[in-house]
């Protein structure tokens, strides 16, 4: 087995809501530098699973280890500061603030932690906006941006935290084909600096980006492997691809 400790791993992670087992004893490993996609039918527990990782939801039992440290006891904001960034499935930018201020909130958080004194607030913000191609919209009020631009702003807020793990929850939902193509290029670019965990329904995006794919069904991991292997897997086809 590989000697390198994975950046992120979960052991026996479980969460139930009432009687429903949303996430059921999941053991999961994510090595640094990878782009990993999680796919699965609606209600498979994907969002709950990543919410457990970033601490928005507390587990019924099980552990989450990040960078060799057990972070199960940390609150959500502490996990973000440990290097796990999460971008929301439903766009939740600060609608009444400018795009600049939205990203500034991420950058100033990083500056407050003293992790990065090199760049001033302004440079950090413009750098992130430039990466997602929103430089020209810096002074626009976020709520008035086009939907696709709001999604990109959401990603900019995530990447401006300079996370070690960036979790993207259905980032391409509602984007046009052209925007999706740009987005794929953006994520590829980001993956040079950070590990990416991606929940995605668009199989084209998944096949283009993912190094490996994890398939979830009914709260469990059904299969895991390269895009080719997953495409060929009979169980996955039955459960998800609908063959």
């Amino acid at each position: 087995m590989a000697a390198v400790t994975p950046l992120l791993s979960t052991r026996g992670l479980r969460r139930s809501f009432g009687g429903l087992k949303a996430v059921d004893h999941v053991d999961f490993d994510l090595p640094a530098g990878e782009i990993r996609a999680i796919i699965g039918p609606n209600g498979a527990g994907k969002t709950t699973f990543v919410s457990l990782i970033c601490g928005r939801v507390l587990p019924s039992s099980g552990t989450v280890t990040f960078d060799g440290k057990d972070i199960s006891g940390l609150q959500a904001h502490q996990r973000v500061r440990a290097g796990i960034a999460y971008t929301f499935q439903i766009t939740s930018v600060f609608a009444n603030l400018t795009a600049f201020d939205n990203v500034a909130l991420s950058v100033q958080r990083r500056l407050l932690d003293g992790k990065d004194k090199s760049g001033a607030l302004h440079d950090g913000v413009m750098d992130a906006l430039q990466k997602v191609g929103l430089t020209g919209h810096a002074n626009a009020v976020a709520g008035k941006l086009a939907y696709g631009h709001q999604r990109l702003l959401e990603v900019a807020m995530g990447l401006a935290l300079k996370p070690r793990l960036l979790i993207l929850d259905e980032p391409t939902q509602g984007l046009s084909d052209g925007e999706i193509a740009n987005f794929i290029a953006l994520v590829r670019d980001l993956s040079k600096e950070t590990t990416i965990l991606l929940i995605e329904h668009n199989m084209h995006v998944v096949m283009e980006l993912a190094g490996r794919i994890t398939v979830m069904e009914q709260g469990r991991i059904l299969a895991e492997g390269t895009p080719e292997a997953i495409r060929a897997d009979a169980d996955v086809q039955r459960a998800y691809l609908g063959a």
């Binding site: 970033c54 928005r56 959500a76 904001h77 502490q78 973000v80 500061r81 960034a85 999460y86 929301f88 939740s92 930018v93 600060f94 609608a95 009444n96 603030l97 201020d101 500034a104 909130l105 991420s106 100033q108 958080r109 500056l111 407050l112 932690d113 607030l121 807020m157 935290l161």
Partner: peptide
């Protein structure tokens, strides 16, 4: 920056938590 954080908390608390605040 503190003032900006306060306004952002007013606008969306959950998002602020997920930005590490």
């Amino acid at each position: 920056p503190f003032g900006r954080s306060l306004v952002a908390i007013r606008e969306n608390e959950e998002r602020m938590r997920m930005l590490g605040y």
